[in-house]
Design a protein around this nucleic acid. Sequence first.
DNA 1: GATGAATGAGCTTTCATTCAT
DNA 2: TATGAATGAAAGCTCATTCAT
Lengths: 213, 213, 213, 213
Amino acid sequence: MTLAEHATPAPRPGRRADAERNRAAIIEAAGAVFAECGGGVDVREIARRSGVGMGTLYRHFPTKDELLATVLERQFNAWLTDAYQRAVATEDPWQALAGFFEQLLGTQAGNRAVVESYASTGGPSASCIQRCYALIDQLRTRCVDAGVLRPGVTTEDLFLLSGSLSQAVLTTAESHPGQWRRLLRISLDGLSSRNAEPLPVRGMGADTPASTD
Amino acid sequence: MTLAEHATPAPRPGRRADAERNRAAIIEAAGAVFAECGGGVDVREIARRSGVGMGTLYRHFPTKDELLATVLERQFNAWLTDAYQRAVATEDPWQALAGFFEQLLGTQAGNRAVVESYASTGGPSASCIQRCYALIDQLRTRCVDAGVLRPGVTTEDLFLLSGSLSQAVLTTAESHPGQWRRLLRISLDGLSSRNAEPLPVRGMGADTPASTD
Amino acid sequence: MTLAEHATPAPRPGRRADAERNRAAIIEAAGAVFAECGGGVDVREIARRSGVGMGTLYRHFPTKDELLATVLERQFNAWLTDAYQRAVATEDPWQALAGFFEQLLGTQAGNRAVVESYASTGGPSASCIQRCYALIDQLRTRCVDAGVLRPGVTTEDLFLLSGSLSQAVLTTAESHPGQWRRLLRISLDGLSSRNAEPLPVRGMGADTPASTD
Amino acid sequence: MTLAEHATPAPRPGRRADAERNRAAIIEAAGAVFAECGGGVDVREIARRSGVGMGTLYRHFPTKDELLATVLERQFNAWLTDAYQRAVATEDPWQALAGFFEQLLGTQAGNRAVVESYASTGGPSASCIQRCYALIDQLRTRCVDAGVLRPGVTTEDLFLLSGSLSQAVLTTAESHPGQWRRLLRISLDGLSSRNAEPLPVRGMGADTPASTD
DNA sequence: GATGAATGAGCTTTCATTCAT
DNA sequence: TATGAATGAAAGCTCATTCAT
């Protein structure tokens, strides 16, 4: 699996060139529109900006949701690829991990509206998540091998952390841009092997729905 | 400012009793409905469950958004009050802070859909946030005085952390309930005075919007 | 069960007067529009002619199909009632049966477009059919008792005949109006007890799809 | 006019062979699809089943309606031919007539598009109807000559009967397959010379549009 | 004041037909 | 000439909000 495949999926061979161009135009326009107006926009607006008719749009994406999902997945995959590429180029395992988070979140900070849209769709697709897992796992393994990561920290923990900090990015982007970096630093310090206490076992004190009135 | 004022706002005088009852019924029903179905529900559903007509609902809340905001604020305030009350009853300052987060997030875990709705409305209202700040600040000050908190950690950091972990609660509620506690533990460890490195200055490397294609 | 109930369903008590008026307006307009343009018309056209908004229309009839069904059912029930009333007033059992068909089909001849719409909806509703069955069955029984009906003829046969002749009404309405009466006469003669040969058993020689090329 | 001309129109000279093959494929697929789904199907479905593209389909048939008409005409003509051939091979005139109906109806059992066409235009196409008239007329004449047909029965009556029974075939195809044969038998009995009463004159009691509210 | 029926712009989606490749 | 992508005008339906009763 090459990274390029994710960034720019190979055009299916039997495809006409203009169809491919339209598909790209739709995705691009949708990305822009979703970013500006959120996932609630009228599909017409996307069609208008793409320069294609409604029918064309629906030929490529049978549902608005599917379009949204595709766009978000592509964006996220691109960010992921960028962040990962820089991470593998970093020698120090800890710096690689930290830089990965730093860059991924930094990119998201510049694309708030896109990240916000993830809420409506239940987040990136399963395949997208899997890929993210895989990338994080590699970085984690390097840290474990180097003995710099707190024992017991799982890939799931790190993945969850990235999602959690995404929220911080979103929250602070307008009023306190960059403040999320402080949180990232705090979390990373908590992840360093300097902290040896075992983490809570998942499932302990599992959450139970409760009324609040 | 007493806590009671937040939990149950003083009934405006001169108001008919049944109007007050209706208002309460609406808020309660809306809370339940928003919790179940998210912020996208049909207003009719709320009216139905409240037992009031649409007109009455709109007399009390001129907009759906305003209703949503009111409900969310009330809920959040209630959670806040609960968590704070337990925290002040805890002697050890660090345990007080940790317990505050633990309980606040634990409550949110049981009310996922409510928390989700915050996304649509831009979070709790300003007054709500201010109160949260105030409460956290008290807990933080105690920790600072006891010398257990990492130097340089601000109330804003802690507030941001709570919002960030809220996201983790949401994400994991279904598949990995309770995993957020591991993240909380990691963050708290990163917040302990054992970590002395200075945090990044806010504004450094501030975020800049960027296209990703 | 009184016949009046079918012709004009008792207005539900708690209903506002104007709602009832609107509902009636919708049904009337829909009847006219369906008759003119067939079942494929835009719902907006019905709303426009009713003088109500789309929302009102959909409040009363949650689906276009349901509106169509309601309208058709009302019409058919009215026709049925008329035809049956005249039939029971006829002393001679055979004349009653014949007159029933005659009048039912005659009415349909004057409302072709309505009848045509039955095709799109799969015919009148189940309750409507049941009622038709019941009415036909009474007339059939009288004929059987009087010994004027061919032995073995079932209510289903007669019901099917009426649908079949409906088609003839439709076919000839424009070019040869009234010709269906000849077919009716022929069928009735075939139904008289003068014909004693047993009818084919249903299921014998059941249809098998066959290609024709 | 030979029968072969109807069954397989002479290929226009100068036409490429694959064009002819495509045309045939389209007609065959369209026949099946229209029969199954009625005239309302998506043209794409026909193109898909034909194995040709939309452009090809529209090159051969400039309009969906024209395609429908062509298909119906061909099918109907084929059935007609079959039924007639068997009828002429039957010695007994009455059996010939009865067998003609039996086979015609049995073959087109449940073809929705055909039945629809009866309702709207009285049959597939004018030329088709004419041919059908001619065939029926021959059978009728034989019966008249043999004195087995009720006096006064016209070719139009018989044609109308076939369309009428088509409806019965469609109606019962799913729930009571084969029941139409009972109706056919009844009708045929009504057509036998045993019934001497004159049939109503066409135009007597001609239909007049009337409102029913 | 309370009620819930009415409103109508706006949403997603379909499909007969055209046209670039 | 064959292909199937593109078109875009409807169509069915929803829902925040208003207003007559």
